[in-house]
Amino acid sequence: MSASTLFKNGWRAALLPVALVVIAQVAATVTQLESDSLASPLDIARAFVSVMADGSLLRATLDTLKAAAIGCVVGVGAGSLLGIVLGLFRIADDALDLTIELLRPIPVVALIPVVMMLLGFGAKMEIVIISLGLLWPSVVLARVAVKEVEPRLMEVSNMLQLGFTDRLVKIVLPAVLPQLFMSLKLAAGYALVVAVTVEITANPLGLGYGIMMAQQALRPAEMFAYLIWIGAIGWLIGVLLNMAQRGFFPAFVKGERR
């Protein structure tokens, strides 16, 4: 994709957000907005500069991103490995299928009280919650990806009498890596959502806690500054992962577009 095309697409995509900001600022100015729950875009921008200048926003961002990254790696890594094993071994798949289907629908937020009783407050509790939230989707996606591997490749591995490690490294992983990366893309955004949710409800750290403190102190401009910043971080993560996908798996990306 050329630079001119990227600029054109980015300009078009920015039209609606810019229009909404302008409309909101005009409405706030005309009505002389004074509220404990709303703020004008100009006030939000001032609040953003303030929390950025005093370092509180950056500290909260680092806390949230660290927990989200570790939880994402652990959850996706463990889930993908388990999914690959289930995809390769029918006996294990049959034995664990009911257990997975019973555990998978449990909302991850419902596990917060349980994990808090075991680990208390802090980063460890948040990482465990994020990991559990990403575990089962990763299991399901990896299991499906392995089952969709070209059957002839698996037949060749059986004929060559490859062991589990050789079959995994030489046959399965090269075939399923694009799908596993797609799983990682989906998990990265979800990890940020879960991290902020845990911080709002249970963990006095990070961006979610910053939102709660701003809300309780009746500082709506600061609260919205945190919210917009979280959206910007999620967008940037998506852009970086899309760039990585185009770099590492260009054929897979072209296949998706077709």
Rank of each mutant, 00 (worst) to 15 (best):
S2I: 05
A3K: 05
T5V: 06
L6I: 12
F7H: 10
K8T: 08
G10C: 06
W11Y: 03
A14L: 14
A19C: 10
I23N: 04
Q25F: 07
Q25R: 04
V30M: 13
T31I: 11
R46L: 10
A47V: 05
F48Y: 14
V51A: 08
A53P: 02
G55W: 10
G55K: 05
A60E: 12
L62E: 07
L62V: 15
T64K: 08
K66G: 15
K66C: 10
G71F: 13
C72W: 12
C72M: 14
V73A: 15
G75C: 13
A78P: 05
A78R: 04
A78M: 15
A78D: 06
L88P: 01
L98G: 00
T99Y: 04
I100S: 00
L102M: 13
L103Y: 10
P105F: 00
A110K: 04
A110Y: 01
A110E: 02
L111C: 12
M116N: 04
M117L: 15
L118V: 10
G122N: 13
M125T: 12
I127V: 15
I130A: 03
S131P: 07
S138F: 05
S138H: 03
V140T: 02
L141A: 12
R143P: 00
A145F: 10
E150C: 07
P151Y: 11
R152N: 12
V156Q: 08
V156C: 12
L162D: 02
F164A: 03
D166N: 03
K170G: 02
I171T: 08
L173E: 07
P174N: 09
P174W: 05
A175V: 02
A175K: 01
A175Y: 01
L177Q: 07
L177F: 11
P178T: 01
P178Y: 04
L180W: 01
L180A: 01
L180T: 00
K185A: 07
L186C: 08
A188D: 09
Y190H: 08
A191P: 11
L192E: 06
V193H: 06
E199T: 10
T201N: 09
T201Q: 14
L205V: 03
G206C: 13
L207V: 07
Y209T: 01
M213I: 05
Q215A: 10
L218H: 09
R219W: 06
R219L: 15
P220W: 05
E222S: 05
M223Q: 13
G231M: 14
W235Y: 14
V239K: 06
M243D: 04
G247S: 06
F249W: 03
F249M: 03
A251N: 10
K254Q: 11
G255F: 11
E256I: 04
E256C: 07
